[in-house]
Nucleic acid binder design. Structure first.
Length: 887
RNA sequence: GGAACAUUAGCUCAGUUGGUUUAGAGCAUUACUUUGACAGAGUAGGGGUCACUGGUUCGAGCCCAGUAUGUUCCA
C-alpha cells in the first residue's frame, strides 16, 4: 500500500473522530469495570475555545484516553455553564445593536431573547472540542439551566434556607454600577491605579457648639474619594496620637453641607498615613462600615445603583461619581478646604465582568453562611482525602477556608436561576420550590388568605449552580441514588485553573459533602496559566491570543496538543510559543517516516533467508528494545500517576526518536538491497504498536492512523485497545540495557573518531580492542561493526601501530584504515580528556586527603570516592598509552 | 501592608532523604555530514561562579538566616 509522503492530518482527523463516534467509543454506561470519571469544567455557554481551554481539555483527554486503554470504564462528561453575568451582557449588547433596550422588555421577553441567543451560539465551544480530539461522552452533555438542573439549584436554595444557612441581610457588598448588580469578593479584580490624595480641612466645633473659623481651628483628613465626604459619619483618629487625642469626643463639620459629625478614637487609624485623621463613610467603604458598626454611627448612602449621587448626598444629585469628584474638588478649593493634593498610587477594585470601578455599597442581598458548611471541605483536603496537584495549593486553600467569609449569592440579573423567594406588598416573604408552594407556605406562616405574592427579581450567582456540577451531571440530586450517580460519583480527577480554586473548587467540595456526604473528586490537577513568550496573560485586548482553530487547521490537532503539552511543566505557568507546534509537527513527521521505512521493509520481507541474505543474526536488538520499552513504560506510569504529564511525554518522545528510530531501527535494518527477515519485521511492528499505544492519549489521530497502516485488519481500534499491564510488571533485563549503553557509546565514539580522522563513510575499517570482559562484546560486536562500517573486529592484548586509538569506558580500541591517518585531531581530543580526568582526580584526592572527610563521611561514600580515584587513574593511564601509540 | 511560591545554559525546565565522576534534558545556536524512512535528517561541539551575602556541615544547586528580583493570592 502506497503511503503518502506526509501525514494528512485533515482527512485523518475527520475520519477517525467520526469513526470513534460511530463506534460509540466515548459513550459510557455503568458496568462491572472500575469507573474513571472526569467532569469537564463547564465553559461559558457563550465561550469560544482559547489556549487555556486547549491546555485544560488536552490534559483531561490524555487522562481519560489513558484510563480507557488501561481497562477502566472511562466517562468524561461535557457541558456548559449559563454564566449569568457574561451571557446577560452579551444578550444586552446584541439587543442594543438591534435598537432594543433591556429596560423596555419584560423579564419573560428578555429571557426569550436570551434563550434564542443560547440556542444559536451556545455550545459552539463544544463543537470546537471535537476538533481537538476530546473523547467526551456527548450523550451526557449537561447545561446548568437544564430543567432538572434548575430544579436542583432551587432545591438546594430551599434546603440551605431551611437549615438556616442562607439568610437575607443588608451588608456591604461590591457593587458593579454598570451591570447594576452585586458581585462576590472573588469577582473583584484589584488593579493599581494612579490617583490623587486630597488633604481636606474640616472645621471644628467649639465648646459653645458653634463652628470655629477654618483658619483658627481645623482638622485635616486625607482621602482619595473627596465626593464621599457627603456621606461622612465621623472622623476617626488613633487614640494614642498626641496630635489629636484631645479632640476625641468633640465634633467637626462636613464641608459644603455643614453636617455635624463626631470625632472618634479608633486604633484602626494609622498615624503615619495621610494626616493621621480618617474620615469615616460607612456606606461606601468596607473598613469604614466596620468602624461605623462598632461606634454606632449613622449611615448616609450617597450613591444610586448606577453610581450617580443620590438625594442623600444633598449636592450634585444625579451626577456620576467621577464627575461629582471633579466638581467637588473645585468647590472645596473655592471654599478653602483643600490643603494640598498629592499623587498617589493605590489599589482599586474593578468588576471582573464589566471592568468598571466597583463601588462598595450597602444593600439587601442573599447570603450563604459559609462557616456552617465549610468544615468537612477543609479537613478533606487537609487529611488527603482530596489531593491537590501541585500540593502548594493546599496552603492557599487552607488559608482561604480558615478565613472564609459569607457568600453573597444574589445577582441583579435575569439570566439565571431566579431566587425562589416570594414577597407580599409589605415585604414579608417565604422561600419555596414554586409559586404554588409559596402561596401555601405564606398563608400558613402569616395567616393570610390567598396572598398576592411577587417572586424575587434577582438571580443566583452562577457558581451557586456550578458547585453542584460533579453530581448533578449524573442527576445525583434530581434523581437521587440513580444507577449513574452510584457508579460514576465521586469522580476521579478534576482538571482546572488555579484562578477558580475559591469560586468553584472549594465550593464543589462543600456541596459534595453537604449533598452526597462524599467528596466530589479524588484529585484536583491545577493547570498553569497560558502566557505569551513575554510572560503576559493571553487576552483579547492584547491580541496575543492565537486562534486555536486556525492553528489546528494549519498544523493539525496532534501537533497543537503536543505543542502545548511539551511546554507545560507540572504546576507552573507556561510560556507558550507557536514554535512548540512545529516541534510537534516534526515529531509526527518522524513517526510517519518510521512507518514509511517499515512499509518499505514489508515489500522486501522474506522468510527463511539464505546465508548470504542475512544481515542480522542475533535477536539481541529485540531483547534490548523490549527491556528498554519496559523501563520507559514503568517510568511513564510513575510520572502519569504524579500528574507529570509533560515529563511523561518527553520521556516517550526520547524513546521514540532516539531509542526506536535512531538505534533500534538502524540496528535491525537490512543491508543495502537485501531482504528483510520476516521475524525481525514482525518484532519491529509489534514494538511500534506498543509505542503507539503509549502515545495515543497524547496524539490520538496520527497514532490511530499509523496503527491501522502497520497491519491490515487490526482486531480493534487503538482508541479502545487495552494496554497489557503485565508487560511492565515483568521487569526489565538490566544486563542487556548495560550492553546497549556500551554499544551506543562505542558507536558514537568510533564514528566521531572516523570523522575527525577524515575517514570516509564508505571506507571499511578494521577494529582491534583490548577489553576487560570479552563476553559482553560477544552479543554486540556484530552490530558495532555494522554501524561503524568495520569489516572485522579482533581482540588484541597489545597496542596496534598506525591506528587511531581511543578509550571507551574501560576498554581500548584501535582503528585501522587503509587511508592515511591524520592523528592531530585525535591527539588534541585525548589530551583534553586527560586534562579533564586530571582535574577530576585532583578534586577526588583533595577530598580523600581530608582527614575529617574520611572520618566523618559514611563508609560507602568514602569507598565510592576511592573507586572514583582508581577509575580516574586507570583512565589516565590508558589515555596516556593511546597518546603514546599515536606516535 | 501580609502571605505563598519561585530564581539553575540564549529560552522552557529536570535535579527525588546533602556525597553517583568538575551540574542534566528539550528547544535554539555553531561546525561538519549530502547513498535508499526522515535536511522538517544525522553527528559533534559551544554555552552555567546553580540570583546575591552570610551560616550549618568533612561535604551545599539541595538545609538555615538575610537581601534582591519576579509571579500569584489576600488586605
Amino acid at each position: 500500500m502506497e503511503i503518502s509522503k506526509n501525514f494528512d492530518f485533515i482527512s485523518a482527523e475527520q475520519k477517525w473522530y467520526g469513526h470513534w463516534l460511530d463506534k460509540k467509543y466515548f459513550e459510557s454506561t455503568p458496568d462491572d469495570r472500575e469507573p474513571y470519571t472526569v467532569v469537564i469544567p463547564p465553559p461559558n455557554v457563550t465561550g469560544i475555545l482559547h489556549m487555556g481551554h486547549c491546555l485544560n481539555n488536552t490534559i483531561q483527554d490524555i487522562l481519560v484516553r489513558r484510563a480507557r486503554m488501561m481497562g477502566k470504564n472511562a466517562c468524561w462528561v461535557p457541558g456548559t455553564d449559563h454564566a449569568s453575568i457574561a451571557t446577560e451582557a452579551k444578550v444586552v449588547h446584541m439587543l442594543r445593536e438591534r435598537g432594543i433596550a433591556k429596560s423596555s422588555l419584560s423579564r419573560d421577553e428578555f429571557l426569550t431573547y436570551a434563550w434564542e441567543w443560547k440556542e444559536k451560539y451556545g455550545g459552539i465551544i463544544l463543537q470546537q472540542l471535537k476538533k481537538l480530539g476530546c473523547s467526551l461522552d456527548w450523550n451526557r452533555t449537561s447545561f446548568t439551566m437544564d430543567p432538572d438542573y434548575y430544579r436542583s439549584v432551587i432545591h438546594v436554595f430551599n434546603d440551605l434556607y431551611t437549615k438556616g444557612y442562607i439568610y437575607r441581610g443588608k451588608r456591604m457588598i461590591n457593587w458593579d454600577p454598570r451591570a447594576k448588580t452585586a458581585l462576590s469578593d472573588e469577582e473583584v479584580i484589584f488593579k493599581e491605579v494612579q490617583g490623587k490624595l486630597y488633604f481636606l480641612q474640616y472645621q471644628l466645633i467649639g465648646a459653645d457648639g458653634v463652628a470655629l473659623p477654618l483658619e483658627k481651628a481645623s482638622i485635616t483628613i486625607a482621602t482619595v474619594r473627596p465626593e464621599t465626604i457627603l456621606g461622612d459619619a465621623a472622623i476617626a483618629v488613633n487614640p494614642a496620637d498626641e496630635r489629636y487625642m484631645h479632640l476625641i469626643g468633640t465634633f467637626a463639620v462636613v464641608p459644603l453641607i455643614n453636617r455635624k459629625i463626631p470625632i472618634i478614637g479608633d486604633e484602626y487609624v494609622a498615624t503615619d498615613f495621610g494626616s493621621g485623621a480618617l474620615k469615616i463613610t460607612p456606606a461606601h467603604d468596607m473598613n469604614d462600615n466596620q468602624i461605623g458598626i462598632k461606634h454606632g454611627l449613622d449611615v448616609v448612602d450617597i450613591l444610586n445603583e448606577d453610581g450617580s449621587l443620590s438625594a442623600d448626598a444633598q449636592l450634585y444629585v444625579g451626577l456620576d461619581r467621577f464627575d461629582a469628584r471633579k466638581k467637588i474638588v473645585v468647590d472645596l478649593q473655592e471654599a478653602g478646604h483643600v490643603v494640598k493634593i498629592e499623587e498617589y498610587t493605590h489599589q482599586v477594585g474593578f468588576s471582573e465582568r464589566t471592568d468598571v470601578v466597583v463601588e462598595p455599597r450597602l444593600s439587601l442581598q442573599w447570603w450563604v453562611d459559609m462557616k456552617k458548611i465549610s468544615g468537612p471541605a477543609l479537613s478533606a483536603v487537609e487529611e488527603g482525602e482530596i489531593n491537590f496537584h501541585p500540593a502548594k495549593f493546599k496552603n492557599l486553600y487552607r488559608h482561604w477556608m480558615e478565613n472564609i467569609k459569607d457568600w453573597c449569592i444574589s445577582r441583579q440579573l435575569w439570566w439565571g436561576h431566579q431566587i425562589p423567594a416570594w414577597y407580599d406588598a409589605e415585604g414579608r416573604f417565604v422561600v419555596a420550590m414554586n409559586e404554588k408552594e409559596a402561596k401555601q407556605k405564606f398563608s400558613e406562616t402569616f395567616k393570610v388568605e390567598n396572598p398576592q405574592l411577587k417572586q424575587d427579581e434577582d438571580c443566583l450567582d452562577t457558581w451557586f449552580s456550578s458547585w453542584l456540577w460533579p453530581f448533578e451531571v449524573f442527576k445525583g440530586l434530581s434523581n437521587p441514588g440513580n444507577k449513574d450517580v452510584a457508579y460514576y460519583y465521586p469522580s476521579n480527577t478534576l482538571v482546572t485553573a488555579p484562578e477558580i480554586i475559591f469560586f468553584w473548587v472549594a465550593r464543589m467540595i462543600m456541596a459534595g459533602y453537604e449533598y452526597t456526604g462524599k467528596k466530589p473528586f479524588s484529585d484536583v490537577y491545577f493547570t498553569g496559566i497560558v502566557r505569551d513568550t513575554q510572560g503576559r496573560k493571553m487576552s483579547k485586548q492584547l491580541g496575543n491570543s492565537p486562534d486555536l482553530l486556525e492553528m489546528i487547521d494549519e498544523i493539525g490537532a496532534d501537533a497543537v496538543r503536543f505543542g502545548i503539552m511539551i511546554a507545560s511543566p507540572a504546576g507552573n505557568d507556561l510560556l507558550w510559543d507557536k514554535a512548540s507546534n512545529e516541534q510537534g509537527r516534526n515529531f509526527i513527521n518522524k513517526i510517519w517516516n518510521a512507518l514509511k521505512l517499515i512499509q518499505l521493509w514489508k515489500e522486501r520481507a522474506k522468510d527463511n533467508l539464505s546465508a548470504e541474505e542475512i544481515t542480522l543474526t542475533s535477536d539481541w536488538p529485540h531483547e534490548w528494545f523490549e527491556a528498554r520499552l519496559r523501563q520507559v513504560c514503568t517510568e511513564m506510569d510513575v510520572q502519569m500517576n504524579q500528574f507529570k504529564l509533560s515529563e511523561s511525554l518527553k520521556t516517550l518522545y526520547t524513546l521514540i526518536w532516539d531509542d526506536f528510530c535512531s538505534w533500534y531501527l538502524e540496528w535491525i535494518k537490512p543491508g543495502f538491497e537485501k531482504p528483510m527477515d520476516v521475524k525481525h519485521l514482525d518484532k519491529a511492528i509489534s514494538f511500534f504498536e506498543m509505542l503507539l499505544e503509549r502515545l495515543h492519549p497524547f496524539m490520538p489521530f496520527v497514532t490511530e492512523e499509523i496503527y491501522h497502516l502497520l497491519r491490515n485488519n487490526q482486531p480493534v481500534d487503538l482508541c479502545v485497545k487495552q494496554i497489557d499491564g503485565s508487560f511492565v510488571a515483568r521487569g526489565e533485563d538490566q544486563s542487556v540495557l548495560n550492553e546497549a549503553e556500551l554499544l551506543k557509546s562505542a558507536i558514537t565514539a568510533i564514528r566521531d573518531a572516523r570523522v575527525k580522522a577524515g575517514i570516509k563513510n564508505k571506507e571499511a575499517i578494521t577494529l582491534y580492542a583490548t577489553v576487560k570482559d570479552k563476553t559482553v562484546w560477544a552479543s554486540i560486536k556484530e552490530l558495532l561493526c555494522k554501524q561503524i562500517n568495520a569489516e572485522a573486529f579482533m581482540f588484541t592484548e597489545e597496542s596496534i601501530a598506525d591506528t587511531i586509538q581511543l578509550v571507551i569506558g574501560g576498554d581500548r580500541f584501535f582503528i585501522k584504515s587503509e587511508q592515511a591517518i591524520d592523528t592531530s585531531a585525535q591527539r588534541i581530543e585525548i589530551e583534553t580528556e586527560i586534562n579533564y580526568y586530571k582535574g577530576f582526580l585532583e578534586s577526588v584526592e583533595k577530598k580523600l586527603s581530608n582527614e575529617r572527610f574520611v572520618q566523618n563521611a559514611k563508609p560507602e561514600v568514602v569507598d565510592l570516592e576511592r573507586k572514583k580515584q582508581a577509575d580516574a587513574l586507570e583512565k589516565i593511564k590508558m589515555l596516556a598509552e593511546s597518546l603514546k601509540g599515536l606516535g
